[in-house]
Amino acid sequence: MGDPGGAKRTILLTFEAAYSGIGRLDRLSYRDTPVHRLDPRAKVVATMLFVVAVVSFPRYEVLSLLPFFLFPALIAALGDIPGGFIARKVAAVSPFAVFVGMFNPLFDPGTVEVLPGVSVSAGWLSFASILVKFALTISAALLLIATTSFPGICRGLRRLGMPPLFVSQLLFLYRYLFVLLEEAMRVVRARDMRSFGSRGTGMRVFVRIAGTLFLRTVERAERIYGAMLARGFHGEVPSMRREELRLPDAVFLVASVSFFALCRAVPVPETIGRVFRGLAG
């Protein structure tokens, strides 16, 4: 509170950081690598199955989940996506899962012997399980968008049965997201320049900003509608791509699904560990 200007600067910085975060993911998604070239449908379905396989593990399971890290690691490596960037984004959204999971050690104090002579509380184990699942599912989702352009994902969703009207909403939202974020950023800057270190945005100022922004939005929508009509729009947003799944897509899908199934059915680490101990002993 000693430096109200500082507080406001932080708000602005958060805004710009969030904006550039989306921008970076978005730019990554237009790269050209073998992973980016895969059909969006194949990637969406594989990622979905990955998430379902991961969360289907029982609550105390930690070790059997570890092989699943191979999937995001491979996607990131083949798709040329910086791992640190993804890891930071995963950490940034973790608070809710951590908050809820944190109670497990408190409410589940029973202990368990994991190694001869070494005991761990069951609650910590289930907390660890939540964290591992969290890291897996969130990184898979982020890697999906980092390796597939959003319009590509939308085409995939449309082919997978999502209503066209909903898909065109997604596309419009994506298209104008960046335009409106910039507009909002200009408004925030103008506000900050004129508020000369007084208190941060109160609700009243926010309401005014949001109201103005909404009216500008409506006017923009009217201009867009005019531009659509000028180019023959008559009620439905047309689309024509009809790509078929190609061999690499099928190979990718079959390989990842078999991998998930294997890791789900067989406790891979335990098996490898047994073999390892067999060899050693």
Partner: peptide
């Protein structure tokens, strides 16, 4: 579509 972008953008503006 644009209204969705509006909500998205306004969520970025925190208020006290």
């Amino acid at each position: 579509g644009v209204a969705g972008a509006f909500i998205f953008a306004s969520q970025m503006i925190n208020f006290t």
